[in-house]
């Protein structure tokens, strides 16, 4: 059993067996992360470039740790979008880096399809670390892993993704992955942040957070992007907090077991109240740990694929 594609560009079209393979492999790396020496020599001699055209300290650190713990050589390249647009094209940048003999590229980029585009213009193995509002497959995989770790299954669980669904790569990758693994999925947020025809993916839509809490086994709460406020998707943060925030009172009112997840970084007391983020329902820090293990699994499976 190996992954079908030599790149990881998204979870759309990735089979249940492949996702299982990644999650099972990640279990091995969770054990490695508990060792006194959290490092294995598996990718010795491989060079991995982290190409980040949007700042995402968290994702980059998680990938970098995963790479270093597999003994790969790591090079970081960060540039903001505006300089890329003015200067060299992505194709030229990538080809130049590849000319220096590298093996894999982990890329974060603002354009949907950028990772696929990269895979068409260079030969290295590509891992998509987020392409605009499209996909962020390793985030969804670590979410799947964390759900499975907590609930011992994914199949049949009810998972609701809460917040800005329209601009979220995390939401889309989660929807693809969760549906493949047999979960029931819903989204919840203001109508202005729910993209057109998303129900065609076979998922439910809630506009009331209390309804979502009553329905779900797991809430995956997304970050509200404060910088999108200029387009007036909702009247104010105050109003958002009042009607959509996941708070302790709301969870307690529901009188049920519920798991709270968040891909980070959290806007405390905006989409998620601090007491919930740090409370007993939260598995947010496990997500962070699992992120390294899942990324090691993906790097291992793609990096040693013959």
């Amino acid at each position: 059993m190996a992954l079908q594609n030599r790149h990881l560009l998204g979870l759309e079209g990735v089979s249940k067996e492949e996702i299982k393979l990644i999650l099972d492999t990640a279990t091995t790396f969770r054990e490695v992360l508990e060792r006194p020496i959290k490092k294995v020599p598996t990718l010795q001699g491989k060079t991995i470039v982290n190409l980040f055209f949007e700042s995402s300290t968290r994702t980059r650190i998680s990938f970098e740790l995963a790479e270093r713990r597999l003994s790969a050589d790591v090079v970081n390249f960060s540039a903001d979008m505006s300089s890329l647009k003015k200067g060299e094209t992505l194709k030229d940048t990538a080809r130049n880096i590849e000319a220096m003999k590298i093996d894999m590229v982990v890329m974060r980029h603002a354009s949907p399809g950028a990772a696929l585009f990269l895979s068409r213009v260079i030969d290295s193995v590509i891992i998509n670390a987020g392409d605009g509002g499209h996909e962020h497959p390793t985030q969804a995989l670590l979410d799947l892993y964390s759900i499975q770790e907590k609930h011992k299954r994914i199949d049949g669980l009810k998972i609701c993704i809460v917040g800005d669904i329209s601009h979220s790569r995390v939401a889309l990758s989660n929807i693809y992955g969760l549906k493949t693994m047999g979960a029931e999925v819903a989204v919840c947020g203001p109508a202005t942040l729910i993209p057109s025809e998303i129900e065609k993916h076979g998922i439910g839509i809630f506009n009331k957070i209390d309804d979502a809490i009553a329905w779900a086994d797991v809430l995956n709460v997304l970050r509200i992007q404060l910088e999108r406020q200029d387009r007036s998707y909702f009247p104010s943060l105050r109003e958002y907090r009042k009607y959509f925030a996941v708070t302790k009172e709301r969870i307690e009112r529901a009188e049920k077991q519920i798991t709270i997840m968040h891909p980070g970084p959290i806007n405390r007391d905006v989409e998620l109240s601090a007491d919930v983020a740090d409370g007993k329902h939260s598995i947010i820090l496990q997500q962070v740990l699992n992120g390294v293990a899942v990324r090691m699994a993906v790097l291992y499976l793609l990096g040693t694929r013959s």
Partner: peptide, 15 residues
Amino acid sequence: NEGFVSTSLGMPPIP
């Protein structure tokens, strides 16, 4: 175009 495909690709839509 805004619709199921733009949603599935995460593309900024034109309604």
